[in-house]
Design a protein around this nucleic acid. Structure first.
Lengths: 365, 365
DNA sequence: CGATAAACTGCAAACGATTGCAGAAACGCT
DNA sequence: AGCGTTTCTGCAATCGTTTGCAGTTTATCG
């Protein structure tokens, strides 16, 4: 069907081995034959068969990315980044969607190693630690966004404590004292970490923590709506809400719209993680950017490093670092306003600077 | 490293060939040995090596999906659908992102066939017709969402003329006479088709076409904003806008928010294609659903059909149909209101029924 | 019980590359 | 010219499967 190495060799009147060596550049050929073969190969339109090569070398030029879904904006940009980076290096990306389901994750993992992937970037569910640990003996693995506590795998994480801290502090600096928090479930690392950042900012500012202002729940719009209602129904409702759980933002916005609560006039709103439409929304929504792009890039860097190390069989490529944290940053848009420390003003509108603050990156832990 | 067929055969004291036949179920083994081998294979944790198998059989159990990006909500759901369907059949999905760039598309296509993919679903840029045509001799291909006019490839399309017609008619039925249209560039099929649907609905209702109400542009928010401004600045602005270009919706919403134009009070708004947040937006945005899910499913059906036909070498699997159209449907939410035929009322609010209308599916052309 | 057909099984050759080893050619040197 | 190096080249094995062919067992029947 297609041109094989044999064809090239025949056309050049050399043996397949010579052809192979000339084309892969495994230096043991004379300059002349080398060039001649390259030319002939091009003329014939020879393309090496990765499958055959893979059988012999045990590599596939395939790298897998396993995420939970594609509706999450962060995963989208990660997928795009990973794909672009890998492609430039001649790898193909196998994108798998696990739906945050341990069973699906486990199944996918086995098929992936069956296919002899050369590397894996995974957002772990956290329930297949043992399996991941085993696989990591065969193929380089980097965890992304979530840590699987049952493993020692190298992990690239967002700096959630810092992000939440940054966001909360921002609101405090704007004069807010009662800041509602809608956060992820407390049995997830990110949920806990974001809460801790919030708490720290409060503490530093000498503001007492009020548990009535803190609500945790799943990463879905419904949660946002429910929590927002609870917060707004409080005898002393918050002057700002920090939605540290980005799918929940939708729910919050709906409730504020229903109740005709003006943002940022009546309520300041700050969200975690960006969505493409946030900056088009009126008011444009200020966010804490978790740095999805940076996360993906770093994960790829680390994976390549490990793959490289494996190829040269110099250790497992671990540089002794288990965990990388990618700094979050605040992007101020128009949904938070400065409030008067004394009276709950209603008309003044803050003049937002939409400058993007600089990124603090990759602090090792 | 891992358990091979040889290991299994040895453990069972049979030859590799017998083992192979027993495990692949190529019937020529006795019931007894068959079961024995299956058992032993399981005990040993044998997993066939798809690479080795692929080398021999020329198949890879890999199916590629090539889309433009992942920020487009339709592509997201398509990717998810395709992945889910394929996985259930034991295929892995190779997701490629071409960015609507002909060069990238071309490169990707060659690497994909290098990898001996078993099938391909592609949203073509339209510039690599010849290449696609050639490839289709080797691997089953189905085009999705866009048609590449330089080819004869089987194509699964949204029924854009019908969708636009449906949407426009809906607005007309609500009493609108001046309906603004923001549509895609007229050098794309979808752009043209949507315009034609709009025009037809107008014609049927006996409403004269007014070109001042029709604006075309790229699929980006900026376009939406610019066009919306032009429409609203008209001496006799429209009472409804149909945004037949879903990224543009963001821009339109921004402009209406800036100008404090109430939806649907002052202006009815209808969009093409869904976004996850549309139903959470206040007002929830009515849409014409292009049926991304159905499109993806149908594309997979057709691809499988062709792959199957190829496997059994009964023709190319073409059923004589070149083009499939997946019906669009209207999803009414809260962004369109009935207006009084006589006066441009301002306070009355329509009582929206959020019932989802039934789907009209898959009309052959 | 023996012949014949049917049902299994094993040998060995693929698939398309890579690679260790040994033989051949080219080169420099005395 | 002869010898030792060095540089190229080719043979053949290998990766883990599948599969045509031939050989072997088992079953069936007269």
């Amino acid at each position: 069907m297609s041109v094989t190495l044999k064809d090239v060799a025949q056309a050049a009147r050399v043996s397949v081995s010579t052809a192979s060596r000339a084309l892969t550049g495994t230096g043991l050929t004379s300059e002349r034959t080398q060039q001649r073969l390259v030319r002939i190969a091009r003329e014939l339109g020879y393309r090496p068969n990765p499958i055959a090569r893979g059988l012999k070398t045990g590599q596939s030029r395939l790298v897998a990315l396993l995420v939970h879904n594609l509706t999450n904006a962060s995963f989208q940009v990660m997928a795009e980044v990973v794909q672009a980076r890998l492609k430039a290096l001649g790898y193909q990306m196998l994108l798998c969607i696990g739906g945050d389901d341990p069973q699906a994750e486990s199944d996918t993992l086995t098929t992936l190693v069956d296919h002899r992937i050369d590397g894996l970037i995974v957002v772990p569910t956290g329930k297949n630690g043992a399996q991941l640990e085993t696989l990591s003996k065969d193929v380089p693995i980097v965890c992304l966004v979530r840590r699987d506590d049952a493993t020692d795998l190298e992990t690239v994480l967002a700096d959630d404590p810092q992000g939440a801290y940054l966001g909360t502090r921002h609101l405090i600096e704007l004069g807010h004292k009662r800041i509602g928090l809608i956060v992820g479930r407390q049995d997830t690392t990110s949920g806990r970490e974001r809460l801790s950042g919030y708490v720290r900012a409060l503490r530093e500012a000498g503001i007492a923590r009020d548990d009535a202002l803190i609500h945790a729940g799943h990463y879905v719009p419904e949660t946002g709506a429910t929590c927002a209602r609870k917060l707004l129904d409080l005898p002393r409702p918050p002057s700002a809400i920090f939605v540290a759980n980005h799918e929940a933002t939708l729910g919050v916005l709906r409730v504020t719209a229903e109740r005709h609560i003006a943002i940022p006039g009546d309520l300041s709103l700050l969200c975690y993680e960006d969505m493409p439409w946030f900056e088009w929304h009126r008011p444009a929504i200020s966010i804490v950017d978790n740095g999805a792009r940076d996360l993906a890039n770093l994960a790829v860097d680390r994976l390549l490093h490990r793959m490289d190390a494996k190829g040269n069989s110099k250790g497992n490529g671990s540089d002794g670092v288990r965990e990388y944290r990618v700094g979050a940053r605040l992007i101020q848009r128009d949904s938070c306003r400065r409030i008067d420390a004394t009276a709950p003003a209603r008309s003044a509108k803050s003049k937002p600077s939409s400058s993007k603050s600089s990124a603090a990156k990759s602090a090792k832990v």
